[in-house]
Amino acid sequence: MSERYTILQMLLIVVGVMASTFITRSTLLVIGERWRFAPRVDAALRYAPVCALAALVVPELVFRQDVLALHWENPRLPAAVAAGLFLLWKHSIVGCIAVGMAVFTLWRLFVI
């Protein structure tokens, strides 16, 4: 694939992706230390991280190759349910990952 681009273009791509990291993560931290958000914005921001994470995670669970897969042949669904329940029970992230991966793998090998 790299040969479809010149070395200069590949460099631009790498720099561009790095710039997207800096621009999105650092801009609001670096600019204008004197101004503050309006209280309403501050209040809204309390719910921003959890909404962002949900919008990232849930499509990962319900789509398989860009097709909505809300059925038992999608091993991610039972695995996520089991992992979520384990987390509520034991409050362990490592356990949540382990249970989820175990259910995912067993489901993939034996149920489907």
Binding site: L28, F37, A52
Partner: peptide, 13 residues
């Protein structure tokens, strides 16, 4: 990467 704009807004203060 846009979700990180939201994160940085929450971290900023």
């Amino acid at each position: 990467n846009l979700r990180f704009v939201i994160y940085s807004a929450a971290l900023r203060g």
